[in-house]
């Protein structure tokens, strides 16, 4: 199993890319969770499951 990239390059990519990806993903997730227009959706969602009616909407 040979891969055309050298081992040093692979390790370098692994060490830097991972960190950048972690930071980028954190920003995206926090942005998503606190996006102002999402507020209503996130406030309603946890309450809907407490709905007492136990049948499909159709």
């Amino acid at each position: 199993m040979t891969v055309p990239i050298s081992h040093e390059t692979m390790v370098w990519i692994a060490k830097t890319f991972g960190l950048l990806y972690l930071i980028a993903l954190s920003i995206i997730v926090l942005g998503y969770a606190y996006w102002p227009s999402k507020r209503k959706e996130f406030e309603e969602a946890p309450v809907t499951i407490l709905n007492k009616e136990d049948r499909p909407w159709q």
């Binding site: 199993m1 040979t2 891969v3 050298s6 081992h7 040093e8 692979m10 890319f17 991972g18």
Partner: peptide
């Protein structure tokens, strides 16, 4: 998938060095 790829991929080149 990223974490796994980043950790495992370099191990397949390790044999060369």
């Amino acid at each position: 998938s990223i974490g796994g790829i980043v950790e495992i991929a370099p191990l397949f080149t390790i044999a060369e060095t």
